[in-house]
């Protein structure tokens, strides 16, 4: 396992660690005994069929639905019971399966809100002395994700592919430590998919990225390490090549019953 390559003292503490995390919705067990360790800067893909618990896993990590059992550590800090906004301020960001933007605001204002959310002064009734720095950060995000021409448009007016780019840009405000991407390639045209993959590859290596992906080619092409989920549990983990060759993984994907 490449997980245990210890380089320095800081690398000792995983960027994100889940210890037997579970989540129930009433009688339904959506997630059970999930244990994961991600080192700093890792690119991890999580794959699995519909209903495997991938998005629920993200929701427990971000606090959208806190876990009902287990513990979650972000850079060694226990965040299990923290509200979502506190986790975000600690360097955790996410995108959603369907891009969630602030639809009536312009793309520029979407970015501004994202930047302010990280920088603080969220209740200010003035823009403050650092307005120039905020604007620069907005422009940096737009440039990084190639959406500069969209800044003046309202979020509701732009296309699905553009919404993806904008949402990822918002998640990059203030440079996160851990970035969770929920099916970023879903519903994209082949052209948009290429742009997205290039964008993901260009992100700083300091960011730990976890990617949920249905498309095995995208997932296996991007990730250094792959976790396969099945029925709310971790089914197996391994290097992309090993996962691609694993017959059992193919059976899960094809919908065959697995014993």
């Amino acid at each position: 396992m490449p997980v245990s390559t210890v380089k320095s003292q800081t690398d000792d503490v995983p960027a994100l660690a889940l210890a037997s995390v579970g989540r129930r919705f009433g009688a339904l067990v959506a997630l059970q005994d999930v244990t994961l360790t991600l080192r700093h800067g890792e690119r991890r893909a999580i794959i699995g069929a519909n209903g495997a618990g991938k998005t629920t896993l993200f929701n427990t990590v971000t606090g959208d639905f806190p876990p009902t059992s287990g513990r979650i550590l972000l850079a060694g800090r226990d965040i299990t019971k923290m509200p979502p906004q506190a986790r975000t301020r600690l360097g955790l960001r996410r995108t959603y399966q369907t891009p969630l933007l602030l639809d009536q605001l312009t793309v520029r204002d979407n970015f501004y809100v994202a930047v302010r959310g990280i920088r603080g002064g969220r209740l200010q009734l003035w823009r403050g002395a650092d307005a120039g720095a905020d604007e620069q950060e907005v422009l940096r995000l737009a440039e990084l994700t190639g959406v500069l021409p969209l800044l003046g448009r309202r979020a509701v007016e732009i296309s699905h592919g553009e919404r993806r780019q904008v949402e990822i840009a918002m998640a990059l405000a203030g440079t996160p430590d851990v970035l969770l991407l929920d099916e970023p390639a879903a519903g994209l045209s082949p052209g948009d998919r290429g742009t997205l993959t290039a964008l993901l590859r260009s992100l700083p290596s300091s960011i730990t990225i976890v990617l949920i992906e249905h498309d095995m080619d995208v997932a296996l092409g991007f990730a250094e390490f792959v976790t396969v989920m099945h029925n709310g549990r971790v089914f197996c983990e391994g290097l992309p090549a090993a996962i691609a060759a694993d017959q059992r993984v193919h059976e899960i994907y094809m919908g065959h019953r697995h014993g």
Binding site: V113, R122, Q124
Partner: peptide, 29 residues
Amino acid sequence: ARTPLGLALQGIRDNPRRMQSLGYNVAVH
């Protein structure tokens, strides 16, 4: 409406869940 508070309020109108994951305490706002 153009200040951090006002824009955050409009963001909460559009999508409270999104605002939470952007670092905002929706209830306080």
